[in-house]
């Protein structure tokens, strides 16, 4: 067993239908010399304590096995643990894998074994980290940028603030998580030529290091699978905060393929 590696299996992988796949995965990891201690997420077990225990036991690389939701459960605290993060997506949604250049299934072991490590930025919403994006759908909120100016969409416009990229749609959209900036996308539906009965969407794009989402009414904000509610949310970028094992051949912006 390689003490530098530890694996976090998501709860759903306890299902019998994953037994064979997990068995093959563990054999493959052993053959590459990257097998390690395994911990399983469970409903009444703290993921944070589990990871900190593994790090204290000497694990330098903690690999999440599951899907995007597995990674999202950890991201709010993970950058402070100080470990290198790996990801083996076994089921969909696996957009984070796509954005990190990691294929779904056993092919992800090739990426893990190659151990190409990159240090990326993470975003922060108030005191919680986020990896992918913050979404404020159909909002009355405004985005205050760098304390200098305020951007307000027409009523019903949506605000997304991206670090790694968007994973909420059918196709992931990449942003650059190494540029030291957050990318704010504000979508508004405007009058004009209608297509399939809908007005066209216009996108405002702004880069920022610090900002505040402000609303006169309480709003829901979605970040890495979590929902928070409130009137005001501080946004910031923390450059070079998280080490991740990545694959090759990923676009840094635009729709990922």
């Amino acid at each position: 067993m390689n003490p530098a590696f530890a694996y976090i299996y998501d709860d759903f992988l306890s299902d019998r239908r994953f037994e064979r796949e997990i068995s093959i995965l563990e054999t493959e990891l052993a053959s590459r010399g990257v097998e390690g201690q395994v911990a399983r997420l469970a409903m009444f077990r703290s993921a944070r304590e589990t990871i900190i225990d593994l790090a204290c036991a000497g694990a330098k690389n903690i690999v999440f096995v599951g899907n995007d939701k597995t990674v999202e459960k950890m991201m709010w605290f993970l950058p402070d643990v100080g470990v290198t993060v790996g990801y083996i997506p076994l089921t969909k949604p696996a957009h984070i894998g796509t954005l990190l250049g990691i294929p779904m299934g056993l092919s992800a072991v090739d990426v893990l074994a190659a151990r190409l490590v990159e240090t990326i930025d993470v975003g922060k919403l108030d005191d919680r980290y986020f990896l992918t994006e913050v979404i404020v759908p159909a909002t009355v909120a405004s985005l205050e940028v760098e304390g200098q100016y305020r951007v307000s969409p027409a009523v019903g416009g949506a605000i997304a603030v991206r670090n790694l990229g968007s994973v909420s749609g059918k196709i992931p959209v990449a942003a650059d998580p190494k540029d030291g900036w957050l990318e704010a996308i504000i979508q508004t539906r405007v009058n004009g030529d209608r297509w399939l009965g809908k007005s066209p969407l216009d996108e405002t794009t702004i880069r920022l290091k610090r900002g505040t989402i402000i609303s006169k009414e309480p709003i829901d904000v979605f970040m890495d699978g979590h929902t928070v509610n409130g009137f005001s949310f501080k946004l910031s970028i923390v450059p070079n905060k998280l080490k991740v094992i990545t694959g090759k051949g990923r676009e840094t912006s635009g729709r990922a393929t």
């Binding site: 951007v151 190494k178 405007v190 290091k209 990545t246 990923r250």
Partner: peptide
């Protein structure tokens, strides 16, 4: 993997030079 948009990695002195800012209709 993450090739920088600006041809180099982040060096702690990021500038938004090179990226186009768009203020669209309805904003």
């Amino acid at each position: 993997m993450f090739n920088s948009k600006h041809g180099s990695s982040y060096d702690g002195k990021a500038s938004d030079e090179g990226a186009t800012t768009v203020i669209a209709r309805g904003v």
